[in-house]
Design a protein around this nucleic acid. Structure first.
Length: 669
DNA sequence: ATCATCATTGTTTTT
DNA sequence: CAATGATGAT
């Protein structure tokens, strides 16, 4: 960790211009970035406040911040920005909202907000609902490519795209009226801003003298442009990425941005990191051979000095039940035999649905596990609803909370009314909540609607007053009864069971609030403080989740596993139609699936097992399964087959759908 | 109009 | 085999 190898050193020390670091899996790229930041500060005289490092996940940002913090003295690190793309975008909008026509305190709509909004728009503008998801995909990809509604509409090639483009137009208008942005806007708006206002761009370019970007292969078109704009003429930046670990093309990532860099910056220097500090050479050999089946611009071979290591085990089981049982039992016995902690083991899979059975089996054997990816407590609809009520209670100016709450339950206040309210509020420079019972509003709005708004505000004000005067918890309980939230849940839930569970979460949250208040020793904690604490917990939820479950077996999708490592890795469902996923086979995007397998394999430090089942229940029907074609591409001498021994070769031959790949794999041997 | 039962439908991956 | 949507009875 402390000593860098020559390649890494080169990457750290090179400040002569744009630099691309092609960092293979486990090659210490985070070390390179963090050391480089320290180097820039300590040896190049660049103040930390002029350095920005960008990542894709909050987790990565946090980790990086920590590691830089241990390399620099407190004062040296002051002002350093390590943030995600979206975070940076949010900060830019925060500072420059006025130039984009937004009000302060804009809201960020999450997935749920957006889907609700889209269905709303579709119902209003047409009366059909073409599936909000599909429309959202269109809008997302347009936004990723910096295409605005007008352009989308002009270029729409078929009726579906046309519909989507029209919805897009309304969607964008509505968001604006709500003073809200979506996730993609966090990138797109700053890019547009910079393109249109040279002075602002210059300001930010002056602020950011050196830019570093992690996981560069995951950037999409608008992120690429954002980087390019921020870098400007200065040309001082380092991007780190690995084309072999590009697994997000489906959400707009453009791994070819790595190549594009060469064209945009002819003086680009490329450094390759090929020494791996994570895995045994056996595992790396397999990974190398697998990924060699993909076309490459940059040839890269991982190697390590971590010893030869054991063979990769390929485990064949009768069905998916036996598969999960086998993995659970193995982990159990291995844990008992070697005393290794459960957290040494990871179970990786292609789709979240595969986790269910696995979970069951682990539970059955009383093996603790940690599941990442599921909807966590604070992400649940009902929790968010109630949290929004809380937020509005303590901060009436939280327009986001206001909007979330205003029609939960239905108060028959449509988007037109809200739009007008929003316009009025922004004219007056006040929040929507504050504007809701202003006399002046009547001039813009039919009295019926104005009355509905002011009734809501009066009600809410009353709740707030109750909180201040009497027992706040009792006030909140009666608020929940007042809005008849339980009934609302029943209406919207698919079943009573679900509704009950959701209502349980609501009371749980109220209890959490109560216990926060009760725990207070000085007795001077206000309800505002308590709610503030909860909101904070909401925001820190991720962190907590990770700390909490650190002792169990780690279960996650292969996508979620990128960047992590585990002594022992099991990849389950190593089958055709699952690992090369069916839709990927159809869409002919096998290469990305191969990269996904590559990512999974390279998570393992010492032990790796790939499992597949001969038969599997799917849609309630038992179907025959075929081992993944990627197994054919691995070097046979490094594999040991376990479980039923009917020649997998025969199965392979029987499968005609990828004869070419099979042939190539044969020749390789 | 609302609810219950029946039929159909489908399963990547997520900042 | 769910979970979601359509259809029919009350």
């Amino acid at each position: 960790m402390s000593r860098l190898n020559p390649r890494q050193q080169e990457a750290v020390n090179y400040v002569g211009g744009p630099l691309l670091v092609l960092a293979g899996a486990g090659s210490g790229k985070t070390s390179v970035i963090t050391r480089k930041i320290a180097y820039l500060v300590q040896h190049c005289g660049i103040q930390a406040r002029h350095i920005v490092a960008m990542t894709f996940t909050n987790k990565a940002a946090r980790e990086m911040k920590e590691r830089v913090g241990s390399l620099l003295k407190g004062a040296e690190a002051r002002g350093l920005t390590v943030s995600t793309f979206h975070n940076l975008g949010m900060n830019i909008i925060r500072k420059e909202y006025a130039r984009m026509g937004y009000k302060p305190g804009f809201s960020i709509f999450d997935d749920g907000d957006i889907k609700a909004l889209l269905t709303d728009i579709m119902q209003k503008e047409y009366s059909g609902d073409d599936g909000a998801d599909e429309i959202k995909n269109y809008i997302d990809s347009w936004k990723n490519d910096l295409i605005l509604p007008d352009e989308a509409l002009a270029n729409a090639r078929n009726p579906k795209e046309q519909t989507a483009a029209i919805v897009y137009l309304h969607y964008q208008r509505t968001l604006k009226a709500y003073n809200a942005v979506d996730f993609n806007d966090l990138i797109l708006l700053p890019v547009k801003l910079f393109q249109e206002h040279a002075d602002i761009l210059e300001k930010w370019q002056n602020r950011i003298r050196y830019l570093l970007v992690d996981e560069y292969q995951d950037t999409n078109a608008s992120q690429y442009l954002l980087v390019k704009l921020l870098v400007g003429m200065r040309n001082q930046f380092t991007v780190v990425g690995d084309d072999d670990q590009s697994i997000y093309a489906w959400r707009g990532a453009r791994p070819e941005n790595l190549m594009l860099l060469k064209e945009d910056y002819p003086s680009l220097k490329v450094v390759m990191l090929e020494q791996n500090y994570r895995s045994t050479s056996r595992i790396l050999k397999c990974a190398n051979i697998l990924i060699a089946n993909n076309p490459h611009v940059f040839e890269k071979q991982l190697w390590s000095e971590m010893g030869h290591g054991d063979e990769i085990r390929v485990i064949r089981t009768r069905n998916e039940d036996a598969e999960c049982e086998r993995v659970a039992l193995e982990i159990l016995t291995e844990h008992l035999r070697t005393q290794r902690p459960y957290s040494d083991f990871a179970i990786l899979y292609r789709g979240n649905y595969q986790a269910k059975l696995m979970e069951l089996k682990l539970q059955h054997h009383q093996i603790p596990y940690r599941l990442s990816g599921g909807t966590s407590f604070f992400a649940r609809q009902e929790v968010k609803d109630l949290m929004s009520y809380f937020r509005l209670l303590v901060n009436p100016d939280d327009d986001n909370a206001f909007l979330r709450v205003i029609n939960v339950p239905r108060r028959e206040i449509g988007s037109t009314t809200l739009e007008k309210l929003g316009n009025y509020a922004s004219e007056r420079g006040i929040s929507m909540y504050a504007a809701a019972d202003e006399i002046g509003l009547g001039a813009h709005l039919d009295s019926r609607y104005a009355e509905r708004l002011s009734r809501f505000k009066r009600w809410m004000d009353n709740v707030r007053q109750q909180c201040a005067q009497n027992d706040p918890i009792a006030a909140i309980r009666s608020m929940v009864m007042d809005i008849d939230y339980e009934n609302w849940l029943r209406q919207n839930a698919s079943s009573d069971k679900v509704a009950d569970a959701r209502m349980g979460n609501v009371w749980f949250l109220v209890d959490a609030l109560k216990s926060t208040l009760d725990k207070d020793e000085d007795g001077d904690m206000t309800i505002e403080d308590a709610i503030g604490k909860l909101v904070l917990r909401d925001m820190l939820e991720r962190q907590q989740e990770e700390e909490e479950g650190a002792e169990g077996v780690q279960m996650m999708t292969m996508h979620a596993s990128k960047g992590l490592e585990f002594p022992s890795v099991y990849i389950i469902g190593f089958e055709e139609e699952i690992l090369p996923h069916r839709s990927s086979i159809e869409a002919d995007t096998i290469e990305e699936e191969r990269r996904l397998a590559y990512v999974g394999i390279t998570r393992a430090k010492r032990n790796l097992a790939l499992t597949f089942a001969a038969k599997r229940k799917q849609y309630g029907e038992v179907i025959d399964c075929t081992p993944s074609r990627f197994l054919d591409e691995l070097p046979p001498e490094d594999l040991v087959w376990e479980g039923q021994e009917d020649a997998p070769v025969e199965v392979k031959a029987a499968r005609g759908n990828d004869a070419l790949a099979a042939m190539r794999a044969m020749l390789k041997r």
